[in-house]
Design a binder for these strands. Structure first.
Ligand SMILES: [Mn+2]
Ligand SMILES: [Mn+2]
Ligand SMILES: [Zn+2]
Ligand SMILES: [Zn+2]
Lengths: 150, 150
DNA sequence: AATATTAATGAAAATGATTTTCAATAGCAA
DNA sequence: TTGCTATTGAAAATCATTTTCATTAATATT
């Protein structure tokens, strides 16, 4: 985790960017949660302690982190983009299970091995057949969670 | 295809809805394309012949068709929701391959058999483990198409 | 066919997430 | 410190989509 810290900071500096307070704070929020936060979520989470940091900056910072490949941006269909630190903590590549009623999101890695194998194979086939250079994929399951089922 | 026409019309009427000109026109557009159109796309496609049909109605009609389970709504990440008639023509369940540069979308069904099998199996496992009732899934590959690669 | 009922429509206004603008600020290299 | 300029915050702008509301038209009834 410590090497990751320096890693992203170095990466910032390496591309002529500055290490600012908002950037450090926003990174820390993402690094210490398991949730899938929206820009507004983050804004409110830090606003008490850092009232000087504006929502605009949250958006800009998240956007930058996405471009740096540090953060993943998701759309779960509720009108708010959500962000998640890549390779954070013990996190690995995973897919999502989303409750369409309450918005609950589950990261699952259970069947990821088989999925990854199939995905890799599919990617290869598709790349060849359609001449695409595939960079990423998204798999999401939508449904109703435990509580919302009844 | 003829039975499909009557099918959706019957479904409409069955739920107390009226069969109006905008609805017929919008259905026809979706039924005669292989593309993934946005509300605005549809609006402009019909505007010359039917200048009386407003964008609001296009949105409303698409929304209704989605609720009826007649149309699928997708977000390919370009800021416009896109719509596709379900089970239209020779179309089957399929996944998408999206060029992040030019927006080209490919429907592919090549590896769908294996995918479907895995998806079904994954759904079962996830349903059990997380107590979700899974209703749908989305799988999309992002990359660069033939032309945009270079 | 004429009429009554009310779902559906279109224009305009509102919404709300995200982006842009721009003058002020703060990293950081020298 | 100083100077350069990337970054910031506030306010305004953008833009896809939704809401409002008076009008219209689909359909059931006469
Ligand atoms: Mn996740
Ligand atoms: Mn498709
Ligand atoms: Zn739920
Ligand atoms: Zn392309």
């Amino acid at each position: 985790m410590h090497h990751r810290h320096s890693y992203w900071k170095d990466k910032l500096k390496g591309s002529g960017c500055r290490l600012t307070l908002p950037r450090r704070v926003i990174f820390e929020v993402l690094n210490s949660t398991t949730k899938h936060l929206s820009a507004e979520d983050i804004y409110f989470m830090i606003h008490k302690k850092y009232p000087g940091i504006g929502l605009t900056t949250v958006y800009r910072t998240l956007d930058m982190m996405v471009r740096m490949g540090l953060v993943d941006k998701f759309d779960f269909g509720d009108g708010h983009s959500r962000y998640e630190l890549l390779e954070a903590q013990d996190k690995q590549h995973h897919h999502h299970l989303i409750c369409t009623k309450c918005g609950k999101v589950v990261d699952y890695t259970d069947f990821i091995k088989e999925e990854i194998a199939l995905v890799k194979q599919t990617e290869e086939g598709l790349s060849k057949k359609y001449n695409f250079k595939i960079n990423s994929h998204v798999t999401q399951f939508y449904g109703l969670c435990d509580k919302c089922k009844k």
